[in-house]
Write a protein that binds this DNA or RNA. Sequence first.
DNA 1: AGCCTAATGTGGTCAGACCACTTAAAATGT
DNA 2: ACATTTTAAGTGGTCTGACCACATTAGGCT
Lengths: 212, 212
Amino acid sequence: MNELNKSTPSTKLYLEIVEKLRQMIESDGLVSGDKIPSERELSDRLNAGRSSIREALRALELLGLIETRRGEGTFIRDYQDHNLIKLLGTFFLQDPKVKQDLAETKEYLEISCLRNVISSTSEQELQHFLIWATEQEFSDDEFFTKLVALNSNFLMERIWTIVNSYAKAANQVIEAIEYDSYIRFVHLMIERNTNQAISHYLKNIRKISNNK
Amino acid sequence: MNELNKSTPSTKLYLEIVEKLRQMIESDGLVSGDKIPSERELSDRLNAGRSSIREALRALELLGLIETRRGEGTFIRDYQDHNLIKLLGTFFLQDPKVKQDLAETKEYLEISCLRNVISSTSEQELQHFLIWATEQEFSDDEFFTKLVALNSNFLMERIWTIVNSYAKAANQVIEAIEYDSYIRFVHLMIERNTNQAISHYLKNIRKISNNK
DNA sequence: AGCCTAATGTGGTCAGACCACTTAAAATGT
DNA sequence: ACATTTTAAGTGGTCTGACCACATTAGGCT
């Protein structure tokens, strides 16, 4: 008779469990790498069937918030690339229009980042960037990963990373790169020459490898 | 003896099921609104337990690709706002830095869209937009939804929608708006005056409502 | 015809059972 | 005593069968 909430949960049980897990993680101060209770123990503690617990864990796994290792347990994990990309990819990356949108969007994001970096990043950081680019070989991917990071906008970084993952999944990879172009690119940033940096980006960094 | 694949599936079963469902949806030509087979039937057809089927369906539900209605069935659905946002939101929207990144990223995206609209959208479409903005009341949300749509870049639209959803979840809502400002904004687009449009956006559309 | 009432089908949830795998403890051999 | 092997316990992965709550439909009653 004390179980009047069993009927019409209004919100799906597994979503409630996700919320309870969140609270548990927060209140217990669990961080990346920590182990969370086993599915059976969670089932006991949260008064839910194991299958419901598992549906909640699948959601968290899909979000990349946990990692399950058979025989070992379930662990908190840094938010990072996750199955979302793979899954969404297989569903949407077929359409050629999507591929075009992808390349375009990636360009928009990179230009946005470029503008922001030019207007907000310190001389010192840009010099470090230049040194890094000068001293070793790098891929286009690595170069822009660093550039986007200079933004110090975690969300923007995340979005770019995801879009970039999609682009990679769609085989839009830039293999051979001209280092001089990239060095010149960084110099234009240091000179705070927004317009020329953008046109250099469009003409020399992207278009060359992109016309096929 | 014919079941040699039962051990060490190497990839999780529910992910395989997701892929099979994708193929099924594709080959059957199912579109938004269509009903997919019941969990029990899928369990039969795909030779998997119902719980595994359900884990796969939870994944698709989280991605917003299906919708389940108790007593009725499971239906294909347009990719749209989904639980991901709610879930990720509850996990990450606590941090104030995230909130700031959110507002900033939204601005970047909107400016990117604005630039693109100014350079690529036809006079006619912009006139339609102007008429729409003149003839009825609208919210900031609705205005930018339309603006972003003018981009005709589905991915960009999607990203903006998600970021906007986060922003709403973080209570970054613009309530009272000055219609004249928005009308003037559209006029600047029609005049193809990029710089002034951007500064108008920053000074009059965003900053006013954003300083609290 | 119109209403009411099974009956059926569906997703939602639970409980129990195996399996495969990992780890650590216990037993064994030297 | 030490090292090796074996066993046991714990954990995620999966399946089955059962019941509930809900929506739709078919049948029967008036």
